[in-house]
Design a binder for these strands. Structure first.
Lengths: 221, 221
DNA sequence: CGAAACTTTGATCTCTGTCAAGATTAGTGG
DNA sequence: CCACTAATCTTGACAGAGATCAAAGTTTCG
């Protein structure tokens, strides 16, 4: 049981050693092949997962196939809602994924009686809420170029903490995923990448980009 | 102290009588005139509020004035993040507002040590998250007409539980607020209302609308 | 009653979506 | 290891939904 993952999953300073050990006994290791669905919106939430390796897209769909990617989960993220009966979104593996699986009822029983775990879940839910609200602001008020540049900057800061420093920013997700995240068509995403490339702002490489300039977080139109 | 408000604020079945009484002693009554700002994004969160009367718009702004309305809060809603140092969005009174004010540190001290209060806050945060994600899906994937009709249906179901049944659905917020909520321009909102009116789907009355037909929650394009 | 604030309507423009065709890349079986 | 196929990505042409600019109409409120 990798102690460090559990620390990143369950926060530093929230749980004590006894609680961490208790949680460890509830977890089983699971793997998902590239593209596999981990759970689907509306399904009974029998389990929650602690992501330990790989990337997961969380999304909602409409009956006609339109899709909204809500977030890209990275190692250390908790997938699923421990205190809810049903999943409110779907989750797919992007590339190979490894995770710790918890029975939701066991996890919930544990959480409901632990002040520290409830505080931690609160913290996580609040963070997710703020991320969703930031995204809402972005997709409703920003141009295609702003959305893409903001996405790249934010992705870099999330990714930086997970990978060895490199000039190349990896983008393991598809253009379609980025498009569905930013509320754009994949063609517009591709064209915006091309525009930034032509301007010398980024360099496009297989499965990633190199950010060139003084990429401060953009906010103006 | 209106016991019923506290029940709607703090959920039925979460807190016991002792806890409710304790909370009551922390609260003071405050009023806000129409249009007044209750708190602003980035401000130190000295207080949280339990909304008892009126309507509040929660929003984020960009430096250039672009604005995203995140939600319209109604009586019974909690305003502000009890466990966060700073406000992550701004809140304005729409019309006259009455609320109970809690010192955030006092509220937080109470919450941090109460399993039931933490569960309740979790429930609230999760609900807010799901509402934000639904909105994200709506504004990214739906046409102007879908957004407006979905807004009206959702607003009716929230409003229905608060007011005496009436054929008229009150819309106390401005067109601009609806536009900033749905990621549209106010002209487009106005034109969409007009279109629905011409079609006989709604009737526009001062400060509200009458929904005409079998308004099932729309989802298709 | 009159001014300010808000809403509606009109005309025009533009950004981005849609449709379509190539170009790359990845995956697979011989 | 390479050829072949499928998937993904890029680029082009075009059109349309909605934004913007502008003005008139309506409501609100001192």
């Amino acid at each position: 049981m990798p102690r460090t993952l559990f620390l990143s999953l369950f926060g530093r300073g929230y749980l004590d050693a006894v609680e961490l050990r208790g949680l460890g006994q509830l977890a089983t290791k699971v793997d998902f092949r590239a593209g596999k669905t981990i759970f689907s919106e509306g399904d009974p939430a029998n389990a929650v997962f602690g992501l330990s390796k790989g990337l997961v897209r969380l999304y909602k769909s409409l009956p006609d196939g339109r899709r909204q990617v809500l977030a890209f989960a990275v190692p250390g993220d908790l997938l699923g809602t421990p205190l809810r009966e049903r999943h409110s979104c779907s989750a797919d593996a992007i590339g190979e994924v490894a995770a710790w699986r918890f029975s939701r009822t066991e996890f919930s029983n544990f959480a409901q009686t632990s002040l520290s775990m409830l505080r931690l879940l609160n913290h996580a839910a609040t963070r997710d809420l703020e991320m969703a609200q930031e995204l809402l602001l972005l997709v409703c008020q920003a141009s295609a170029e702003e959305r893409v540049t903001t996405f790249l900057v934010n992705w870099r800061s999330r990714f930086a903490s997970l990978s060895t420093p490199s000039p190349v920013l990896a983008l393991p997700m598809r253009r379609q995923d980025i498009a569905d995240f930013l509320g754009l068509s994949l063609e517009t995403v591709s064209r915006t990448f091309a525009k930034l490339h032509d301007r010398g702002t980024i360099r496009i490489v297989p499965k990633g980009v190199v950010l060139r300039e003084n990429w401060r977080t953009p906010r103006a139109k």
